[in-house]
Amino acid sequence: MKRRLIALAAACAVEACTPAGNSTTGERGTVHKAEPMPARFAVGRTATPAEVAAWNIDVNAKGEGLPPGKGDATAGAAVYAAQCASCHGAKGEGMPPNPKLVGREPRDFSFATTTTAVKTVGNYWPYATTLYDYIRRAMPQLAPGTMTPDETYAVIAWILAENEVIPRDKVMDATSLPAVVMPARDRFVPDDRAGGKGFR
């Protein structure tokens, strides 16, 4: 192999095998370089506004994406009983593996140092808007996407009220939901790991 490379190098030296342009001539004959890639291949088609609207269902922490509608915990109790209780328990106590939804302990967020703490909406979730985003996309599990905005706001109000995050008569809507400050809001920190020496 080495001898072959030397021979090739010698041939190149004589024949000037890397001439200007997009080809090389040598033992393999003339070999062309690939054409440079375009900035765009112009593959795919333009999405229509209707297509975007149909799938653009996410809600962020500012409440962007929340639809019109409203509901309170009283209305939410009925929605919860009908749609949620069979998996999450009558009072949101959870039915493993279906998670517990209600509970404020440990109020000091000591999840790392205790081994018995169970995460709930009230003790762990940093943003109330996440409830709307998640329920709309995935709940109830056997019929996702079937609850109306009023039902969704109402059941969220029930979950938050049961967690003592909002008063029972507080109405949840596109304005009030993003304004709810969750108990664990300030418990979350950015990732400070970066590889290298030392363990974090």
Partner: peptide, 18 residues
């Protein structure tokens, strides 16, 4: 948020720990 975040001593949780 509620999942895939890492509770740490000091009563914090690391998020976006990819």
């Amino acid at each position: 948020t509620s999942k895939y975040t890492d509770p740490l001593p000091g009563n914090k949780a690391r998020m976006f720990s990819f």
